[in-house]
């Protein structure tokens, strides 16, 4: 890992190729960063300053990204004693991910919810989950009559169940709300957060009609033995305190052809996931052949998440 460590000469060499204004801004930050970094004695001491001066994900060169990932990996090693690998799988051309969920089959066991937490390294204490499973009254689609804190054996005779997670909206109000572009929709439709760019204003959380965003009010805690070492920079890497996070359709898995963790955990086969642009994909088949409905469709956010019956 050491060969990947900060090398300011190398970084500046890369900068030469970038636009002039951008280069000078970068340079300004680098000089500041370098000045403070050299004052520190070790890599670990330098890290807070490099975190502080880190630029927006979209402004980073591949080389800078490699260095940042190495730094983040080293931080986890320091803090937890766990070797993790941070990768950055890119969206695939011709792929637009979508989810379909069978309300008739879901039994409300919440396995998706817990599998998600494990896969995505979300905080165990305080407990932070991306998926909310609603216990719904039969005879109503009104989520306001739902219960999220149900206990005991499921399913019951009086209820059906509706898991809700980020709907990866086409017209995402969270993306528009963010004052610093720390959250955006990737070309494959997945709405991501740059955890190092988020300033923690929580306007996106207020804007979301699906209660899909989660804020780290406290330092997230995950036991070292429970850390999933296969991490995506824009998805399940360990988050700092004070930033927003959310479901990313497990992009570190799905962009490599795997299924999301919630789908794999589902014992009833209620969850279908795939490429909306592929006419033969399961999710496309569901939309074309089943009765589909969209939660809070009146909010006008055009989600890539569909509920269906059958």
């Amino acid at each position: 890992m050491t060969e990947d460590h900060q090398n300011h000469d190398e970084r500046e060499a890369v900068v030469e190729g970038v636009g002039k204004a951008q280069a000078s801004r970068r340079r300004f930050l680098q000089v500041l960063g370098a000045a403070t970094a050299t004052a520190a004695t070790s890599q670990a001491d330098a890290a807070p300053w490099e975190d502080f001066f880190q630029q927006h994900y979209k402004r980073l060169t591949d080389d800078e990204k490699r260095q940042i990932f190495a730094r983040l990996e080293a931080q986890v090693q320091d803090k937890y004693g766990v070797a993790v690998r941070i990768s950055d799988p890119k969206p695939i051309d011709g792929v637009e991910f979508a989810y379909a969920l069978n309300l008739q089959a879901c039994v409300g066991c919440r396995r998706c919810e817990y599998a998600c937490a494990q896969e995505n390294n979300t905080s165990r204490s305080p407990e932070l989950h991306y998926i909310r499973v609603l216990q719904m009254d039969k005879g109503s689609l009104d989520v306001e009559r739902s219960n999220t804190t149900y206990e005991g054996a499921v399913p019951t005779a009086e209820h059906y169940y509706q898991p809700v997670q980020c709907h990866q909206c086409r017209d995402a109000p969270c993306v528009r709300a963010c004052p610093v572009n720390a959250t955006w929709a990737e070309p494959d439709g997945i709405v991501v957060v740059d955890y190092n760019w988020c300033i923690g204003c929580r306007y996106c959380e207020a804007a979301c009609p699906y209660f899909a965003r989660r804020f780290n009010y406290e330092e997230p805690t995950v036991r070292p033995s429970e850390i999933n070492p296969d991490q995506g920079y824009l998805s399940n890497r360990l988050r700092p305190r004070g930033v927003m996070e959310k479901c990313t359709y497990c992009l570190h898995r799905t962009r490599k052809g795997l299924m999301p963790a919630c789908l794999e955990a589902c014992p009833t086969g209620s969850r279908k996931f795939g490429n909306l642009l592929d006419p033969n994909s399961e999710v496309r088949q569901v939309i074309e052949t089943k009765r589909v409905y969209i939660l809070h469709e009146d909010a006008g956010t055009n989600p890539r998440f569909y509920y269906y019956f059958g």
């Binding site: 204004a21 801004r25 300004f28 930050l29 502080f52 927006h56 528009r176 709300a177 963010c178 004052p179 610093v180 572009n181 720390a182 760019w197 988020c198 300033i199 923690g200 204003c201 929580r202 306007y203 804020f215 780290n216 305190r241 004070g242 930033v243 927003m244």
Partner: peptide, 27 residues
């Protein structure tokens, strides 16, 4: 004081950071 990372306020400064203007009402 409401920000999770008040020290990162420089992200709001155009050019140095990114001000999502005119999309974001907070901007």
């Amino acid at each position: 004081v409401d920000l999770g990372h008040p020290e990162l306020f420089w992200h709001l400064v155009p050019s140095l950071g990114i001000l999502n203007f005119p999309q974001s009402m907070l901007a």
